[in-house]
Deep mutational scan, measured.
Amino acid sequence: SQTQRTQDENEARRIAEEWKRRGYDVEVRNRNGHWEVTWD
């Protein structure tokens, strides 16, 4: 799996939607004030 971090929730949601469209299983988490998008 791969993880991308961002400070911006909207960006995190956009990234998550992009990977979901490509057929990946995606998880979005808030950790210590930043957002992590993990896909595999």
Results as ranks from 00 to 15, higher is better:
20 K>H: 08
16 A>T: 03
2 Q>V: 11
10 N>R: 12
28 V>I: 13
7 Q>L: 11
31 R>F: 13
3 T>L: 09
29 R>N: 11
39 W>D: 01
28 V>D: 01
8 D>H: 07
25 D>N: 15
19 W>N: 02
7 Q>C: 10
23 G>R: 01
12 A>H: 01
29 R>S: 12
31 R>Q: 11
36 E>A: 03
9 E>Y: 11
32 N>G: 11
11 E>A: 07
18 E>D: 09
15 I>W: 14
21 R>L: 11
24 Y>L: 04
26 V>E: 01
34 H>Y: 15
20 K>F: 09
7 Q>F: 10
11 E>M: 06
9 E>M: 05
14 R>H: 07
15 I>M: 08
7 Q>K: 14
22 R>H: 07
22 R>Q: 09
31 R>Y: 13
13 R>M: 11
13 R>S: 05
1 S>E: 10
20 K>P: 00
7 Q>V: 10
40 D>E: 13
33 G>W: 02
25 D>R: 14
2 Q>I: 11
14 R>T: 09
11 E>D: 08
10 N>D: 13
27 E>W: 10
21 R>N: 12
32 N>R: 04
4 Q>M: 15
35 W>C: 00
20 K>W: 08
38 T>S: 11
17 E>V: 05
40 D>Q: 15
39 W>S: 04
22 R>V: 05
2 Q>D: 07
19 W>F: 11
2 Q>R: 12
21 R>P: 01
35 W>T: 01
26 V>C: 04
2 Q>H: 14
40 D>I: 15
8 D>V: 03
7 Q>T: 13
23 G>I: 00
13 R>Y: 13
26 V>M: 02
36 E>L: 08
16 A>P: 00
21 R>S: 12
9 E>G: 04
20 K>I: 13
8 D>Y: 07
1 S>M: 13
5 R>G: 06
18 E>V: 09
31 R>K: 12
8 D>E: 06
5 R>Q: 11
20 K>M: 11
22 R>F: 06
19 W>Q: 05
33 G>Q: 03
34 H>G: 09
21 R>Y: 05
1 S>L: 13
21 R>I: 09
14 R>W: 07
1 S>W: 15
37 V>I: 10
39 W>N: 03
35 W>H: 01
15 I>E: 02
24 Y>T: 02
35 W>D: 00
23 G>A: 01
4 Q>Y: 15
6 T>Y: 15
12 A>T: 01
36 E>F: 11
1 S>T: 13
32 N>L: 06
16 A>F: 05
1 S>I: 14
31 R>M: 14
14 R>G: 05
37 V>S: 00
33 G>F: 02
13 R>A: 06
37 V>R: 00
17 E>Y: 06
6 T>P: 05
35 W>Q: 00
25 D>A: 13
